[in-house]
């Protein structure tokens, strides 16, 4: 079982490219029709340097270009079938558009037991910077592990 010794554990940084084709596939999957996202000319006319990413796409990028997308589970010896996503937050500091390359640095922020140990809540915080070293976002997720 995961315990407090996991707090502070840093994962291998992930570098991910915001590629137009992959982003288009995400929009197709969600039925997105907003012209800001679907038309580069419309995005530029609205003041963006390129097509912007949608609010949750940072989460995807970190997994898409991760050689070990479930590293945090294997490193902490957690079975993939026992995890649920409890909470997710994004704080945006600067725009991210198609063509950017982002680096994600994640670490374990907290470990807490709930329901008499039936659940373990793991908080993971991630700092996101772009190719110019600009700190573009912070994300935080809570992973729920079903024990027993």
């Amino acid at each position: 079982m995961v315990d407090q010794s996991a707090v502070g554990h840093r994962f291998t940084p992930v570098t991910a490219a915001v590629e137009p084709g992959r982003l288009r596939y995400f929009f197709e999957t969600l039925g997105e029709t907003n012209s800001l996202y679907r038309d580069a000319a419309a995005a530029k006319a609205a003041g963006y340097k390129g097509i912007p990413i949608p609010p949750t796409y940072l989460f995807c990028l970190e997994m898409l270009d991760n050689e070990k997308p479930f590293e945090f589970l294997t490193a902490l010896d957690i079975d993939l079938g026992r995890v649920l996503h409890g909470e997710q937050s994004f704080t945006y500091h600067a725009p991210v558009v198609v063509g950017d390359t982002l680096t994600f640095q994640s670490s374990v922020a907290s470990v807490a037991e709930k329901k008499g140990g039936a659940l373990t809540l793991i908080g993971v915080n991630t700092t996101v910077t772009n190719q110019h070293g600009v700190h573009v976002a912070d994300t935080a997720r809570t992973i729920v592990v079903r024990n027993g």
């Binding site: 969600l30 039925g31 997105e32 907003n34 800001l36 996202y37 609205a46 003041g47 963006y48 912007p52 990413i53 949608p54 609010p55 949750t56 649920l84 996503h85 409890g86 909470e87 997710q88 937050s89 994004f90 704080t91 945006y92 725009p95 935080a140």
Partner: peptide, 22 residues
């Protein structure tokens, strides 16, 4: 989907933070 609904109303350049509990 919730993010799509949000950015229909507010363009992404105006969204400062976004969080949910599942």
């Amino acid at each position: 989907y919730l993010g799509q609904a949000l950015s229909d109303a507010f363009p992404p350049s105006r969204i400062r933070s976004f969080s949910t509990r599942f």
